[in-house]
Nucleic acid binder design. Structure first.
Lengths: 205, 205
DNA sequence: TCAAACCCTCACGCGTAGGTTAGATTACGG
DNA sequence: CCGTAATCTAACCTACGCGTGAGGGTTTGA
């Protein structure tokens, strides 16, 4: 903390770079392994020595990471920038990369907005449980038949019904409202997922 | 494909459950390991046998997963539902869990909206590179000094400037516009990150 | 010249959500 | 009774972004 960080002319060592960027030394070496950053040179003893703009690079990495880019994506980005050599082609690649990321981002936003709605709806539902706070009404809570002011239980609340082990033989069957919500698989591949068997249709009862 | 899936009364085997939900057998066993799902019983030979509502449970898991919940979070959810026993307390725990998730979700949305803006801006910037498509102008592309119609390079484009190895001695130093963008560290802890050393300002030159 | 910092290269560990064998056993149709 | 499909457990592999040693060399200032 007291020693001057800069000793080799104006070159930085990993520790300096780490301190200047708030990253760990390990992280910086990782970025190097991933091809995101190279020291300008090495000392005779093998120490990594960086020029000042490495700081910008690391901040850029941190920034993109915070925005959801993986190190690998950043590498692609850098590569497509530096590979094509002749400007416009590289730019085209970059545009495509950005375009893909943009679409992906928009999807993510939509999914999370959906989640936000589900959560607020779930909370609204659970709020009405306060009404049950009388000892008498409480007993039957989990097999609650009270009107929560909604047509169905919110998706996030449904499905919680059966305890592991204790075969609780569902009180109200068939409430899952899987409607328009995406599942993890939908995002990646369109499997032959049977069209939602939404409700109770057993041969019993 | 031709064999009837249901043989033990109306109980399902893992494979059946897998097919009905679109998940892999492995995934289902994983859910069990995580305490999210229990077979109603086992066959004498040790095969897992599920009742129909296991299908709902798996769909619920898939749903929440798609919404960004981890298996662990789902387990917490189930546990807080089934542990407290007496309704309202369990509901309170659930509300808190939902509340936390909601806050987290809103943050995620904001971050991704930020990313969306950055990406569109980056794309807008790269669009102007088409103008350089004349052989003459192309050569200097990477050390481009042309006016792209913006005050600064977009954050996503800045930081790409130096190729790994080839010490390119920054053509335009100090352009990173880290302004109001969150970095990954900011989200977790507020380190003593030095206040952005935006440009060359060493004791040299 | 010495000790304190600092750095080097392996290399394993974590948590997530499974995939993918392997070798053995079970269930079921013919 | 036999073959085949399905299932069992156990264990190891993937990708991500590092954390955390171990064991040893380098720089630097006093």
């Amino acid at each position: 903390m007291s020693t001057e960080p800069i000793q080799n002319g104006h070159l930085l060592r990993v520790g300096d770079l780490a301190r200047l960027t708030g990253k760990s030394v390990r992280a910086i070496r990782l970025y190097e392994e991933q091809g995101l950053l190279q020291p300008a040179t090495r000392s005779s003893g093998g120490f990594r020595l960086y020029e000042d703009h490495a700081v910008e690079r690391v901040r850029w990495i941190d920034l993109l990471h915070g925005l959801g880019f993986s190190l690998h994506e950043m590498h692609d980005l850098l590569r497509s920038w530096w590979s094509a050599g002749l400007g416009p082609e590289a730019m085209t690649e970059l545009r495509e990369l950005f375009g893909r990321k943009l679409a992906e981002t928009r999807e993510t936003i939509l999914r999370h907005q959906q989640l936000e709605r589900e959560l607020t709806e779930g909370l609204r539902y659970l709020e009405t449980c306060r009404v049950c706070a009388t000892p008498a009404a409480v007993k039957g809570c989990k097999s609650c038949t009270q009107d929560h002011g909604m047509k169905n239980e919110p998706a996030l609340v449904a499905g919680i019904v059966t305890p592991p082990g204790a075969a609780r033989r569902f009180a109200r069957a068939g409430f899952v409202r899987i409607d328009g919500i995406k599942t993890s698989h939908d995002r990646l591949a369109h499997e032959s997922k049977p069209p939602v068997v939404s409700a109770g249709k057993e041969s019993k009862a």
